[in-house]
Design a protein around this nucleic acid. Structure first.
Lengths: 152, 152
DNA sequence: CAGTTAGTTCTCCAAATAAAGAACAAACTT
DNA sequence: AAGTTTGTTCTTTATTTGGAGAACTAACTG
């Protein structure tokens, strides 16, 4: 059994993800795989730790794998899958999240094209937002470079 | 009536927001206020343009105002409220979104405190993620400065 | 081949969401 | 005072969602 503290942390991580439109169980599983000492769990362990049905876990794991947040490895002589977070590529994920902010940029472009010149000040704000999003996108790689440098 | 193009754009912007956990109508209203030539709309106009009930609009507008995405102004001799996006502070909003990415950092800190040393490599990844998030937070202001400079 | 293990798929159900509609209220108008 | 405008609030309803549980399957095990 997991400590009260870890269980509570898993729930909070779950809620955190829920607030961002992630299915509840998916958030819990990510929390579980973070706090588990082994950093991995079998299908059955996930069912037992989180006290949910196999079907729910099956679905959640498939989505998590499709999204690239979770993967599994196997061990010789063991048919079980050992699911784990794909933290190795956290920089890629982070970059994706940063770019996602800028995803609004293409909508804003379309908005600008659809708008007339009645409200130049408003249009100007939208243009600025676009510019910043594009600027941000160009700066992301150097942001990571700077970080790596600062880490030695 | 709005052009087919604008209606379709509003819907896509709505879906974009839905995917991020925003209530459907809230996303549509934000889309509407973006594409409307006047960049503002009365309560009744929102009801008519989007073809939804007054109660739905009332609730959505209240939430949007609470979240600071929408505000209204009035005009002398007119009791109507003219709702509009609060784009003026888009830099503040953008900063909040960037910081939100880093919000995971505090959870990661807790995870680290709850974890033992069994998986040093995994722990190391988490530490790196924390470090980058913290680094990102410190860099946000200069990011905006750089942008302003690049804009002259 | 009978039984287990590890997971999937399908059907069903409870709860949460989102919005409709009607009644209501406050402020203004005539 | 009676009616209108501009919303709000309350109750109800349709839809979506998330997960339970059972039946199923594929792979292995003895």
């Amino acid at each position: 059994m997991l400590s009260e503290k870890k269980l509570e942390l898993i729930e909070r991580i779950g809620v955190f993800h829920e607030m961002r439109g992630v299915q509840p169980l998916m958030g819990r599983i990510m929390g579980l795989l973070l706090v588990l000492e082994e950093a991995e769990a079998t299908f059955e362990e996930i069912v037992d730790y989180l006290n949910v049905s196999k079907s729910a876990v099956s679905n959640a794991l498939n989505v998590l794998q499709l999204k690239g947040h979770v993967a599994y490895k196997t061990k010789p002589g063991d048919r079980k899958r050992f699911f784990h977070l794909t933290l190795e590529n956290w920089q890629g994920d982070m970059e994706k999240k940063l770019c996602d902010i800028s995803e609004m940029s293409s909508f804003m472009q379309e908005v600008l094209e659809a708008r007339g010149e009645t409200k130049p000040e408003f249009n100007h704000n939208i243009k600025d937002i676009c510019k910043f999003m594009d600027f941000l996108k160009t700066r992301i790689p150097s942001l990571f470079n700077e970080f790596r440098k600062s880490q030695g």
